Simulated assay, not measured.
Amino acid sequence: MDNIGGEQGLYRPDSYFNKLEDAGWVELEDKRLGHVQFFEKEGTVIAIEIHEDTFDIHEMNKDAKY
């Protein structure tokens, strides 16, 4: 994606994140770590790592410490 992240990955793609929330994903704002943001839905937690012009999505292990 173009024009997301910025040099330090701090600018999230709001249109994509709005679609996540519309689909029932809830942001775990207290877990946010700079350019990594966490969402939960039905017991599944994902981490979205934002970079300049890209982002990665990781499903967290059930016993992961984050």
Rank of each mutant, 00 (worst) to 15 (best):
I4H: 05
I50W: 07
K62A: 12
K41N: 08
V26P: 01
M60W: 03
V36K: 11
I48S: 04
I46T: 10
I4A: 02
V45S: 10
F55L: 04
T44A: 13
Q8C: 13
Q8H: 15
I46K: 14
I4Q: 05
R12F: 15
A47Q: 09
Y11M: 10
R32F: 00
E27Y: 06
F17H: 11
F38M: 00
Y16F: 15
E40P: 02
E29I: 08
Y16K: 12
V45G: 08
D22W: 08
G6E: 03
N61R: 14
Q8L: 13
D63Y: 12
E27P: 03
E29H: 09
E52T: 06
R12W: 15
L33P: 00
M1R: 10
W25Y: 06
N3E: 11
L33Q: 11
S15R: 12
D14N: 15
S15A: 14
E49M: 12
R12T: 14
G6N: 00
P13L: 09
E40D: 04
D22S: 12
E59T: 14
T54M: 07
K62P: 08
F17M: 11
T54G: 00
L28G: 00
E42D: 15
K62L: 10
E7F: 09
L33G: 02
T54R: 05
D30W: 01
P13M: 04
E7N: 09
H58N: 05
Y16L: 11
E59C: 03
N61Y: 14
F17R: 07
F38D: 01
E59W: 03
I4L: 06
K62N: 10
H35Q: 08
G34H: 05
R32P: 00
D14A: 15
V45H: 11
I50G: 05
D2E: 12
R32Q: 07
E49S: 10
I4S: 03
Y16Q: 13
N18Y: 11
W25P: 02
F17K: 07
F39C: 05
G43A: 05
T44L: 10
E42T: 02
I57F: 01
E42H: 05
P13F: 07
D53M: 00
D53R: 08
D63P: 04
L33N: 11
W25A: 05
E21A: 12
V45W: 06
K65M: 06
K62S: 11
G6S: 01
D30I: 04
L33V: 08
G24M: 02
E27H: 07
K62F: 11
E27W: 04
G43L: 06
Y11S: 13
G43D: 10
K65Q: 12
R32W: 02
D14V: 15
V36M: 08
Y11W: 11
L10K: 12
L33E: 12
I48P: 02
M60H: 01
V45K: 12
D63T: 10
T44Y: 05
E21K: 14
D2L: 11
F39G: 04
Q37L: 04
N18C: 11
E42Q: 09
M60D: 04
E27G: 07
A47G: 14
N18G: 07
Q37F: 06
H58V: 05
N3C: 09
N61I: 07
G6C: 01
G6D: 03
I4D: 09
Y66T: 07
A64Y: 09
W25L: 02
W25G: 01
D22L: 13
Q8I: 10
F38N: 02
